[in-house]
């Protein structure tokens, strides 16, 4: 059974050049941080690279690093910021074809009058994954990173009106697809 270390102890190991710190950080946070970044940038490989870079930076600064808050929110913030920088750097502002149909795979038997909560959630996740790229990006920034219209517009260098349109579009798709599923 693995020894339990708290945040403070992990940081102490890190400050002391102890590679066990990296083991612990990977085991505790890698999957979580990848998922956090993926929800913003929707690119599996890029999300892994972003998170790996965070660990590399931690290792480079290991002797001087001083984290005054808990590690989880600290790393999460770092991951999200890097994810957003990745979008800016790569200029990943997809142009959605407004008429493109949303291709969502339905896996639920027809004629079902209601859904269990789990099924509903699964359906919602499918719809989110299937949103057009630009729509998905903006919806994710609002839903999962609590960014305001202004912040999203600034981050992507687009107008607030575009943000409004994409949010509205995402919610409309979500509602209509989930409703279709429920009938």
């Amino acid at each position: 059974m693995k020894e339990k270390f708290n945040d403070e102890e992990i940081l102490e190991l890190l400050n002391n050049n102890d590679e066990r710190a990296i083991e612990l950080l990977f085991d505790r946070f890698f999957d979580y941080l990848c998922a956090v970044v993926y929800r913003v940038i929707h690119d599996y490989e890029a999300a892994r690279d972003v998170v790996q870079d965070i660990f590399l930076d931690l290792w480079k600064k290991r002797e001087s690093i001083n984290v005054s808050i808990a590690l989880r929110p600290y790393l999460r913030r770092a991951a999200v910021n890097r994810g957003l920088n990745y979008i800016k750097r790569k200029r990943i502002i997809p142009n959605d074809d407004e008429d493109a149909a949303v291709d969502i795979v339905s896996q639920v038997p027809s004629g079902q009058a209601y859904m269990e909560k789990d099924e509903l959630e699964t359906r919602i996740y499918q719809v989110i994954e299937s949103l057009p790229p630009k729509c998905k990006l903006i919806f994710g920034m609002s839903r999962f990173e609590s960014m305001s219209y202004q912040e999203i517009a600034n981050a992507l260098d687009i107008s607030i009106k575009t943000v409004e349109n994409q949010i509205s579009k995402a919610l409309k798709i979500l509602r209509s697809e989930v409703q279709l599923f429920m009938v």
């Binding site: 890698f30 999957d31 993926y38 892994r48 290792w59 959630e121 999962f144």
Partner: peptide
């Protein structure tokens, strides 16, 4: 209702942690 439920969305994928660790 949909907005609140969608918040639970957390992509569960195999992030291949061991390979990332080796590369690190």
């Amino acid at each position: 209702y949909l907005w609140n439920i969608s918040n639970n969305y957390f992509p569960t994928k195999d992030w291949n942690k061991d390979a990332a660790k080796d590369a690190f």
